[in-house]
Amino acid sequence: MSRYFRNIAESLSSLLTGMGITFTHMLKIKKGNVTLQYPEEKWPRPERNIGFNHEDYNVIRSRLTVDINDCIGCLKCERICPVQCIKIETEKAPVRGEDINEINHVGITSNGTNKVQVVTRFDIDMTECCYCNLCTYPCPEECIYMTGGPNSKKHPIDYEFSEHDRSDLIYRFAKPGTKEGIQKVKSKQGAQS
């Protein structure tokens, strides 16, 4: 009998404590509010300075971007990718480190490296990417990065990149027409010599 009443008393008191806590939470709703009205409001992304000093490096994982003018076609990012979502094809340039105007090929990277290869295909399938960030470390020219990386001013940090067509998520960074262009250039040079 006494146990019956004790149970009721315990239930009531524990319920009241719980309700009290939820009530205090309700009172400070303005201060501790964490719900965001999503499309209008967005969660602030951590702000960090940008640069290659590791302490300042902005590490946001977002979509991958390649500065194709800086890419030397070393295939290091393709090899390190655990899901093989980067596909690169290269063609040997006729003259090392020289611009080819027909296909807008830049011969020297911004780091001053003379390019040996012309990148004819640089595709990243963002549907396959697992955002591990492994590809950005080995790059000798620092030209592949998750947006929000070193050149984030050019590419705003962005988590929302849905597309209507799935094939639009395959990002093609090589300049269009490079493959045919370089073959044409080569055959022309072959005919001249």
């Binding site: 960090r48 902005n58 946001i60 994982r61 955002y131 960030n133 998750m146």
Partner: peptide, 12 residues
């Protein structure tokens, strides 16, 4: 975690 390594769930 996001501040440290850029990812919220799968960090590497």
């Amino acid at each position: 975690f996001e501040l440290t390594c850029g990812a919220r769930l799968l960090y590497n």
